[in-house]
Design a protein around this nucleic acid. Structure first.
Lengths: 118, 118
DNA sequence: TCAATACTTAAAGGATGATTGAAATATGGA
DNA sequence: TCCATATTTCAATCATCCTTTAAGTATTGA
């Protein structure tokens, strides 16, 4: 994740509907959610959700795949993790305070995190 | 950090000049940097940097304090940490993949992180 | 108190982003 | 093939954000 990508990701997340979408997809997991289901959950029109889904897809935070008549959207965990990493990147060069809350949250899934560390 | 604050923080970070400012201040540490020094580093006009500094301050990501003729800006580590935490909050409810990169970075300053965990 | 330094504020513009409704595309079943 | 479903695209409008220039405030030293 470079600065250009991070800027795009921050822009994508700076809109209420889009932030809600991402959070719903993170919770939904690998199964994802259809555009229509998302529209219902966040209570916006089909055309509006489509607009925001395009933006999120373009930013790389989510991915789309057609499944019959529906289009299923899923969170891109790699991109989200990359963004967290980007935000924390500089903190170790002298100021670990930023990392503390991250470490706190990361601790809850330490086993997996540890695995991915190797 | 609630959703309203996160939205503001993401909006603040979604602009190149502001993202640069925050990253400079994170590296600068508790000493911070004067508005003029920041303007020189990111190569924008005084009035322009002032505009962006106001936005960042309003979002809570940075703080200001006058010191003689200069105004010194510092990163708000608590807010930045809170944002990281917000981004990762849902990942543990089933999908720890997001936390992995965070844990990786957090590991480098583990001692401090551990202290703050209690 | 006057002038210089360091910033901020205000106003005006141009650019970008969001919302809406209507029309278009893709898929599956009768 | 025809219709219904699910979603996207397009065009128009409105709102918001960014940049610039000019004027204003605060602080220091002569």
């Amino acid at each position: 994740m470079d600065q250009r990508q991070a800027l795009g990701a921050f822009a994508a997340l700076s809109q209420e509907t889009r932030l809600q979408i991402v959070r719903l997809l993170v919770v939904a997991g690998p199964d994802g959610m259809a555009a229509g289901a998302l529209a219902e959950k966040v209570e916006v029109s089909p055309s509006n959700i489509s607009f925001h889904l395009k933006e999120l897809e373009h930013s790389g935070l989510i991915a789309a795949q057609r499944q019959s008549r529906s289009i299923i959207y899923t969170a891109n965990y790699e991109a989200l993790g990359g963004l967290v990493r980007f935000l924390m990147e500089d903190c170790c060069s002298g100021h670990p305070e930023i990392c503390a809350p991250a470490a706190e949250v990361a601790a809850c899934c330490a086993p997996t995190a540890k695995e991915n560390l190797q």
